[in-house]
Every structure is written in C-alpha cells, then in structure tokens.
C-alpha cells in the first residue's frame, strides 16, 4: 500500500493518517489544533491538503490514507486556505506568543494586517487561582485545553466552549472562577496550550519568570 505525496511515493499502512504518512518522508504539514497526545479535533484546518478527486481540501490530521491516493501538501489551493486562515486569526487574537504560527505565516507570505479593520476577541486576563492565568486574548480556540481537561487526559471537565461562531470562547461552566469549578490544577491544559493563553505562575515569583512578565500591567 502506498500514497503519492507531493510526487513522492510513500509506503503506508492501513489506518495511517496523511499527516503521519507525510512525516515519514520528512514532509512537515502545518498544524495547530493537532497534538500527539490528544484526539485530533480537526478544527483549525491548517493541515488541509489537496487530495486529487476530493471536492474539498481534507484535514491531514484525521484523513486516513487510501491505496494510490495522490496528495498535494503545498498546492496554491492549499496555500491560499492556510494563508487566509492565518490572516483571519491574526486579526482576531494576539499571536505574539505563538512562534509556530508566525513562522507558518511568514512562509506563506501571509499579510497579518489584512483584516486588521475587523472586530477582535477581547477579554480581561483571568487571574483567579494560585497556579495559572488565563489570557484569552491569545486564545485561538484550538480546544486542546478542553480535551486535556476532559476525556483525553484528566477527566475533570472543568472547561467547555461557550458562546457561538466568532464569539465562541473557552469558559468554565456558568463562567465560575476556576477555584469554584471541578479543576484540580493538574496543569495539563497549560502544558498543551500552543499560544501562551494559559500560563503557569510558578511556585515563587522570579525575575526570570516569563509568566509574571506576561501579566497585564496597570494602564
């Protein structure tokens, strides 16, 4: 069994995803919500690739290989979708602490100010417990934290998605402060956050701590 990825013949096994198949031959497909320890949510759509014969692009993180499939990971159609998603994202939230995304954007020649005239998602920084802060101005809604808190790691279910559409947000149930939720402060959500929206405070304040630097300063 094999697939053709960007012209390369890649031997694969049943059940393998396109992302995994590409990785085998050193082709890196951009991704954001994907995390190797979590169930792929397939929602960021950065990992979309062109599968010859398919009506739409397909997300490489969940699409399973089929014998003889011809895949393009860098076609203009693919790059246009990725570039536009990053441009839209950059106009919505603060990506300054998401170096991977900024690197993808640079590679795709994305104009991160292209939609800067649009609404942003803005929140106060939630500092309601001794262990971590939540700065949803940097949240890209990858939902990794919700998954880590839920079925994929901790089975605690303190986090959920509330709201809808553009104004969706990661939240606690009834918007309760974290100490009043089922949160056990395991830290898994902080560990999987890709954009610096969740940050550990650390046991002691330290001058080197990037965490303290990231807290909002008084205006």
């Amino acid at each position: 069994m094999h697939v053709i990825i960007d012209g390369q013949r890649v031997p694969v096994t049943e059940g393998m995803t396109i992302l995994e198949a590409a990785e085998q031959v050193g082709i890196h497909i951009p991704r954001l919500c994907y995390h190797q320890s979590l169930t792929p949510a397939a929602i960021c759509r950065l990992c979309v690739v062109e599968w010859e014969g398919a009506r739409t692009l397909v997300p490489a993180c969940v699409a399973r290989v089929q014998d003889g499939a011809v895949i393009h990971t860098e076609s203009e159609r693919v790059r246009r979708a990725r570039r536009t998603i990053l441009e839209l994202l950059a106009s919505t939230v603060d990506l300054s602490e998401a170096p991977d995304l900024l690197a993808y954007a640079a590679e795709l020649n994305a104009d991160l100010d292209r939609f800067a005239d649009g609404a942003r998602r803005e929140f106060p920084v939630y500092d309601d417990n001794p262990f971590y802060i939540r700065d949803y101005n940097k949240c890209v809604l990858c939902q990794r934290c919700v998954q880590a808190c839920g079925n994929d790691m901790q089975f605690t279910y303190a986090l959920t998605v509330s709201g809808r559409g553009f104004y969706s947000r990661i939240d606690t149930f009834y918007h309760a402060p974290m100490p009043e939720t089922t949160c056990v402060f395991c830290g898994n959500c902080v560990a999987v956050c890709p954009t610096g929206a969740l940050k550990e405070k650390g046991p002691f304040p330290s001058p080197q701590s990037p965490v303290l630097d990231a807290r909002p300063s008084e205006p």
């Binding site: 929602i43 960021c44 759509r45 998603i85 839209l88 994202l89 919505t92 809808r164 969706s168």
Partner: peptide
C-alpha cells in the same frame, strides 16, 4: 449561525 467549531467559518463569516 456559524457554530464556531472550525476556523474558516468561525472567522470567515464574521469578516
């Protein structure tokens, strides 16, 4: 009406 699950629609319908 966008549910907000995937980025293209969540962000694209607003813009």
């Amino acid at each position: 009406e966008s549910c907000g699950k995937c980025y293209p629609c969540q962000l694209g319908t607003q813009r």
